[in-house]
Design a protein around this nucleic acid. Structure first.
Lengths: 105, 105
DNA sequence: GTGTTTATTAAGTTCAACTATATAGTCAGA
DNA sequence: TCTGACTATATAGTTGAACTTAATAAACAC
């Protein structure tokens, strides 16, 4: 599953995590702020650009709309990417000696 | 500790991890290939550019040389960055429901 | 002595993420 | 009701990390 936008950037990663539930762009922005305890606040341009990009790659897809709002959700391919990303991160964390995650991968 | 090259890219992250031991550029390249089980193979341009950048930011420093080889090692500031990065990754992993790392952060 | 590995440098390209701005609807309070 | 804040999306232009490619050169094996 080699792909040009792997490894996932923090932006892409959080958007995919947020879209495990169907959400429109603005709601994704708010969910990410919440998930990250306010550490990650995406600018509008970054958010909508990334959504367009993820949609183009088939990792998320539109699943309806409410007025101006366009609702997206992660696809099966997107979920597979998330799973691979989780394993990549667990591997990197295992390289920190003394880490609580050691010996897990 | 807000910084322009945070969050750490995979490249920067592996280089810092490799330089917890003193190493020259080429040895860093090999260590990263080994650490990542061959998944991450840095091109020469990427590696030396990143080393220059990390040195400029004070996260690694030259600690001697052997002929053409210039040996670098992580600084205290670099170690602090690694620690922060570890925590960031553990937090993101905790967002995966059912993950073994859940409830750790 | 020819080819491979070691070791570093530099030029030029790509694209995600950024800033900044434009647009427009909704909604609360003065 | 009008003024500002919030909701919601879009787009133009900039920056810089990571990439490809290639040049240079020493050391070593065959």
């Amino acid at each position: 599953m080699k792909h040009k936008l792997l490894p996932l950037s923090e932006t892409m990663h959080y958007i995919l995590l947020a879209l495990r539930e169907p959400r429109h762009g603005y709601a994704v922005m708010q969910e990410i702020e919440k998930m990250s305890h306010g550490d990650v606040i995406l600018a509008a341009g970054t958010l909508y650009g990334a959504i367009e990009n993820l949609n183009k790659h088939g990792w998320i897809e539109p699943v309806g709309s409410e007025g101006r709002r366009r609702i997206y959700q992660i696809t099966e391919e997107g979920s597979a990417v998330l799973k691979a990303e989780q394993e990549r991160l667990l591997h990197i964390i295992s390289l920190y000696e003394g880490s609580e995650a050691n010996e897990k991968i």
